[in-house]
Design a protein around this nucleic acid. Structure first.
Length: 201
DNA sequence: CGACCGATCGTCT
DNA sequence: GACGATCGGTCGA
């Protein structure tokens, strides 16, 4: 297992990066507790030209400023006052692209995840959905801006990859407000995987 | 099943 | 002062 280097994120094609993130392993190591999961669902957000993106039309605020950094850092924000959503910033400085991680298949530290989430048993809801997986891995808004080359929070790859034909594409979830951009097929997921959000098909 | 609804708060208008 | 890139519970068919 090898940490993805900075060049992985420093590329211009956010859709390509989103698809390549499927099968990679998101790792957190906070207070010496390691938790990790294999990525099975992602969504790409294409910056200033994407109405569903926080950076639509070049919008720039204290909250989304980190999206304008060089790729390879975390962008975490609070949604509905409850959920901390974890994104990977991609592309070069001033190009605010990001990939939202929406589903993980747990790999390591399941006990810790159960403790963090307060769940009684291990089932697919533990790391299914962006709010749930952040809670399970202990990711909060204070981690926004953290480099993914750090020891506490990073993404790694091993020799495993999902076969191409197992990857599905669909519109993104919960972005109806984005009008004509809401139908863009920028969501990628592993077909039939239990840790993919939404209804099974 | 599907539809609906309340929780909860930082962020932007 | 309004509103989410959500979740899980409840209610009715």
């Amino acid at each position: 297992m090898k940490k993805l280097d900075k060049d992985f994120y420093l590329r211009k094609d956010v859709l390509l990066i989103a698809k390549k993130l499927l099968g990679k392993i998101l790792v957190t190591k906070f207070d010496n507790v390691e938790t990790s999961g294999r990525i099975v669902e992602v969504e790409a957000y294409a910056g200033t030209v994407d109405k569903a993106s926080h950076a639509w039309s070049g919008k720039r605020t204290a909250r989304n400023e980190v999206m304008y950094a060089d790729g390879g850092v975390a962008y975490v924000y609070l949604c509905y006052g409850i959920h901390h959503l974890f994104n990977v910033v991609t592309n070069y400085k001033e190009i605010p692209h990001a990939v939202l991680i929406r589903g993980l298949e747990p790999v390591k530290g399941i006990e810790a995840m159960i403790e963090r989430t307060g769940k009684k048993i291990f089932d697919s809801t533990l790391t299914r959905g962006p709010g749930n997986l952040s809670k399970a891995l202990g990711i909060f808004t204070r981690h926004s801006g953290t480099s993914l080359q750090s020891k506490e929070l990073f993404i790694a790859g091993d020799d495993f990859t999902f076969p191409k034909k197992q990857i599905g594409a669909s519109p993104r979830i919960g972005v109806e407000y984005a009008a004509e951009h809401a139908i863009w097929p920028y969501r990628f997921y592993i077909k039939g995987n239990l840790f993919v959000s939404g209804k099974p098909k």
